[in-house]
Design a binder for these strands. Structure first.
Lengths: 416, 416
DNA sequence: AATTGTTTTTTCGAGCATTGAAAATAATGC
DNA sequence: GCATTATTTTCAATGCTCGAAAAAACAATT
C-alpha cells in the first residue's frame, strides 16, 4: 500500500520534505527562492524555516558581502544545511576492495578508510562483524561526529532479496546470505540501507549531469562486470525514481560462454573485461573466468584494438554485439531516451559502437522511436559515491528530518 | 514532477479518493467498514460520505432486510456508487474488430456495439471520424446516459507516444500517426485516454484474480500477437501500478524469422498463431505473414499437437523456446513472482511449458529466486474489458469526483 | 542625515480538514 | 418496555496552509 490517509501531519511532512529536497538539489537558497521553487506561500515558508532553524537542521548563511552584486531591497538570507546536524557512514563494497566514508549532512567528506578485500576474507570473518569493526574504528577516530551518526548506507553488487535486507547472490565472495545489514543495524541501533551498485551509478551519474533529470536513462556499467541501472524522468529525489536490473546476466546466447555467475551465455561473459580478454586470446568459452583481471591487461587490450589488432577488435565486436542485443532486448521492456556506457569499458566504446547500434537498429521500438542517444563516460567511482551519498542524505532528509514534530511554535508560545 | 505542495485541498482529495477506491475495490461498504478500510476516523468518514451523498456520487443502499443475518445494534447502511453519476464510453480496437461499450459509474454494461474492421477501413475514413460517428450513434441510442458521459477510454495495440496521445506504430492498419484521441476529445469535449491492450490485460487479470494484488506479475498474451503487461505488488488502484512492454517484438534470434512488424527474429514471429503455423507447415521463415489467421486453423494445430503430431509439437517447442528465452531475458530487467499466459495460446501452454521452463532455468535470477509461478488462462476478452472499464472508472473517481470541491457543508451552513 | 524605493521576511486572521470523545440513533434481546 | 449493542453524527480542539498587510533591512536619492 502506497496510499495513506492524509492529515495535517502528512501535510507538514510533505512540505518540509519539499523544502529539504529543494536545498539538496539546488544548494543554499533564500526563503523567497525556496517559496517559488517549492510552490509554497511565503507565510508557510517562514513557518517551515523557523522550525528547521529551531531544530538546527538548517542554518542561515552569513553571506560574505559581495561588493559586485549590490542589489536594492532587503538582502536575501540564504539557508543551507547545518553540516553537523547528522552524519552518514557509507560503505562501498566491491569484489576486491571496500571503502568506508564518513560524510556530514551537508555532503562533505569527513573521513575515509580504504580496505583491500581478499577473496577469502568473508570466509574467515562474518561480513557483519568486519563492517562493524571498521565503522567502530571510524567512530573512535571521529568521536564528535559519531554522536550524530544517523544512518549507514551500503553499496553492494549482486541480487538483493525482496525487502532489500540482504543479498541472495553476490559476485563478492562469501557475502550473500549473511545478515550483515541487520547485524549492523542492531549493533549501532541505526537504520542500515543496502543499494545495488548499478542503481547508484545510474542515480549518481544523473546527479552529475543535471540534463538527464528530464530523460529516461539506462546507465550501463562495463568493466569487471556488466551492470545496469534505470532512471525515469522527473523525480529528482524521491522514492522509486530508479530501477534495478540484472542486465549483465541477461542471456545473450543460449548455451554460450561461461559466466562468473556460473550460468552460460550471459552478456557479462562476452562484454566484461574477462569476457573480452577470453575472446581476444581465443581461450575456450567454457573456461572458468579468473576472479579478477589486472586493469593493466584490460587497458593493453583496448590499446591493441585501437591500433587495429585484429583479434582485439574482434573481441570488442563480440562484446558490442552482446551489449547491443542486450539493450535491444531490454528496450522491449524499458525504452530509455538515453543510454550511458560508464566504467573502464567506456574507453572501448567507439570500438563497440557499430555493433551496438546495429543490434539496436533491429529493435522495433528503435525503428519507431529512433535510436536513443548513446554516450560514454569513463569514471564510475565518483557517480557511485555521489549516488550513495545522495541516497543516504535524502533518506535522512525525508524519513527523519521531514517527519520531526513541529517544535518552535509550541516552545515559543509556551515561553511567551 | 510528482511531488506537489500539500494543503487542505490535497488532503481532502486524497481522502475522498481513498474512499472511492475502497468502494471500487470492495463494492458497497458501510461507513464503519470504510473507516477501518481507509484508516480514516469515523468523524471524517461522516463528513466525506455526506459530501459524496450531497454530490450524488454515492447513494445509501436500501438493504433487503436479510432475515438470516439479524444482528444486534444499529444496522449498518452500505454506500454504493450512484450508477447514474457518470458514464464512460469504452472502445476496444483490435486488428480485425472493434467494440464500443457504454458503462455506468457502477460498472454495469449499458449498451454495446460490435464492429468488424476491414483492413482498408482506416485508409478510407479517418479513425477519429469513424470513432466519433460510432460514439455519436451510441449517444443518440442512449440519450439519457449521454448527458453524463464523462470519459472515453480506448484500448489499442501498438506503441504509444510518450504522452499517450497517439500511436507511433500499430499492427492495426492505418491507425498509427492519426490524432484520433485528440480529435475525439475535441469533438465531445471529454477526456480521452489511450491504453495499451497488453497493459489492460494485465490489469484486468489482476482484478479477476485478487490474490495477484500482492504479487508482481508478467501477463503474457499469446494468440494472433504476443504481448505483455507488468503489474507490481500493492497499488490496487493508483497511478503507475503497471508497466507496458513490447515483449512480442523483443528480439529472440538475430536475423531470424520475419515478423508482421517488418523486423526479423521477434518473439511474435515464433510464438504467435502465424509463427507457429509457419513453423509447423515448414513455410520459409522469411515468408511475409498473412494479416490474420483463421482461429479454426490455429485450433486444429493445437489439436494435432495434443495428439502427438511431430511437426505440430515441434512448432510449439520452437514457440515455447522463444517465449522462454524472452521471459528469461525480461527477468534481467523485471523479475515477477508470477507469469500468466493468457489468450488462445494458453491452450497450448502445456505443449510449450518444458521449453519455457528450460529457458527460465538458465537465468541467474531464476536460479537465485526460484522459478516464478507460471499459470495459463484461456480467456483474454473479459480481462481486457474489465481492465479498460476499471481504468476509466478509476480515472473518473480520482481525477474528477475526488477533486470536486466540498459542497454540502457550505450549503448547509449558508442555509442554516 | 533624512527620506524614498525596493526586496525580503514576518505577522495575523481566516479557512479547512482532520481527530477523539461524547452523544444520538436504530436496531435486537429479554 | 428497557437494557444492550453497533453504527453514525456532533462538537470542540488542533494544526496546517494561504492572502494580505505590516515590518525589516538595505540602496539610492535628496
Amino acid at each position: 500500500m502506497t496510499r495513506f490517509v492524509s492529515d495535517s501531519d502528512s501535510v507538514r511532512r510533505q512540505n518540509r520534505g519539499l523544502v529539504l529536497s529543494a536545498l539538496r538539489v539546488h544548494g543554499p537558497l533564500s526563503r523567497t527562492v525556496l517559496a517559488s521553487q517549492t510552490g509554497l506561500s511565503h507565510a508557510s515558508m517562514t513557518a517551515i524555516t523557523q522550525d528547521l532553524l529551531a531544530q538546527h537542521i538548517v542554518t542561515e548563511l552569513a553571506e560574505t558581502p559581495n561588493s559586485d552584486a549590490k542589489t536594492r531591497g532587503r538582502p536575501a538570507v540564504r539557508m543551507g544545511f547545518n553540516r553537523t546536524a547528522a552524519y552518514a557512514a557509507l560503505f562501498e563494497i566491491e569484489v576486491s576492495r571496500a571503502r568506508l566514508s564518513l560524510v556530514d549532512y551537508g555532503g562533505t567528506l569527513v573521513d575515509r578508510i580504504d580496505l583491500p578485500l581478499a577473496p577469502t576474507l568473508f570466509a574467515t570473518i562474518a561480513p557483519g562483524e568486519f563492517l562493524r569493526e571498521r565503522i567502530e574504528y571510524l567512530r573512535t577516530r571521529n568521536p564528535v561526529e559519531a554522536k550524530t551518526l544517523r544512518r549507514i548506507a551500503i553499496s553492494v553488487q549482486g541480487i538483493l532479496d525482496r525487502d532489500g535486507r540482504s543479498l541472495k547472490w553476490s559476485p563478492i565472495a562469501h557475502l550473500a546470505g549473511t545478515p550483515f545489514a541487520d547485524s549492523l543495524a542492531d549493533a549501532f541501533d541505526l537504520p542500515v540501507t543496502l543499494y545495488k551498485r548499478g542503481r547508484l551509478l545510474a542515480e549518481g551519474t544523473r546527479w552529475l549531469n543535471p540534463e538527464l533529470h528530464d530523460a529516461s536513462v539506462a546507465t550501463v556499467f562495463v568493466g569487471s562486470t556488466v551492470a545496469m541501472g534505470m532512471t525515469f524522468p522527473g523525480e529528482i529525489l524521491g522514492r522509486g525514481s530508479e530501477g534495478t536490473t540484472e542486465f549483465g546476466h541477461m542471456n545473450h546466447m543460449p548455451n554460450g560462454a561461461l559466466c562468473r555467475c556460473g550460468m552460460r551465455g550471459c552478456i557479462e561473459a562476452y562484454a566484461s573485461d574477462y569476457g573480452v580478454l577470453r575472446t581476444a586470446y581465443s581461450v575456450p568459452e567454457t573456461t572458468t573466468p579468473a576472479p579478477s583481471v589486472p586493469p593493466q591487461q584490460y587497458d593493453d587490450l583496448i590499446q591493441r584494438a585501437e591500433t587495429g589488432d585484429r583479434s582485439a577488435t574482434h573481441a570488442f565486436n563480440i562484446a558490442g554485439r552482446a551489449i547491443g542485443f542486450g539493450l535491444s532486448r531490454m528496450m522491449a521492456v524499458f525504452d530509455p531516451s538515453h543510454i550511458l556506457i560508464v566504467g573502464p569499458g567506456a574507453r572501448s566504446f567507439e570500438l563497440m559502437r557499430p555493433e551496438i547500434e546495429a543490434a539496436l537498429a533491429g529493435a522495433l521500438v528503435c525503428r519507431v522511436n529512433g535510436l536513443p542517444a548513446i554516450v560514454a563516460y569513463r569514471d564510475e567511482k565518483e557517480p557511485i559515491f555521489r549516488g550513495l551519498m545522495m541516497k543516504a542524505l535524502n533518506e535522512i532528509d525525508q524519513a527523519e528530518f521531514a517527519a520531526l514534530p513541529t517544535s518552535s511554535r509550541g516552545i515559543e508560545r509556551s515561553a511567551g
